[in-house]
Amino acid sequence: MSELSQSRTAVAAPRRSSGLFGIDLASPKHANKLGYLLLAPAALLILAILVYPMLLAIDISFHDVKFATLSFGASEYTLANYQKLFSSPDFWNAIRVTGQLLLVVTTISMAVGMGTALLVNQQFRGRSFARMLIALPWAIPEVVAVVTWVWILDASFGVLNWILIKIGLVGGPVSWFSSPGTAFSAVTMVMVWKGYPFISIMILAGLQSIPEEYYQAAKVDGANVFQRFFWVTIPCIAPVLGVTLILTVLWVFRDFSIIYVLTGGGPVGATETLAIMTYEEAFNFFRMGYASSIGVVTLIICAVISAFLVKKTSHAIY
């Protein structure tokens, strides 16, 4: 070891570089400056492409503009858009449709997601392959999924009608997109199909994080399979369920592509959610101010719902 010390002068001390503007950002004194520097590009970008547009949208919603303007306060401030909105039957219809869809889609996809997660959480050969297959619809782009379902639901040659007739559930072919009830069912089907894989993946991750000892302890205490599910599984995955529920609700609330490509909101507004209505008002009728006011209301409802769910579910953990 003594020979180690002979060569110690051989390695030069690192350069005494002075970094940016003569400030050595490596010095402990300046560490936080580097933190700001690293955050700056993202902060500026977000300011430009998220904050500014958002404020603009809120501003537009208080103006009577037909086309999006870029200057704040271009014309007189007015509450006309909101007054019109709250007295419009279309708006209340959209609220009702969105609410119904939220309830139905969330409930069914949570059930399917939970069921599939429990299924592939079992131990069996080929489990990882099964897990991959079960959540595969996640990897199908929404537009692709919708187009595929339109073909499956086709009134004349759709395979679903053939199956339903074959097993005697319906007398003749169903024209899915021409009546409000069936159109709503079609939207529900596609949304559940696109929505359950996410829930399944999340719940499965939650299930896997439960220590096996909990189940062994419950067995020792004499709990049967249902008791173990309700007293071990559910409480353990409650936080995961909470997060999943919030994200699913937000998705259903704001999703555009599925409904727009599938039904366009029709027939007669049966599937027109707030998101569809916003888009239609903005880009079909070019009532940008009015559309923005719907967007603002959507944003507020989203915020309220998530705040409520966060409160509820974080409560459920304890």
Partner: peptide, 9 residues
């Protein structure tokens, strides 16, 4: 005191 860790040897 104000030297970067790498320069303190």
């Amino acid at each position: 005191t104000d030297l970067a860790p790498g320069k303190r040897d």
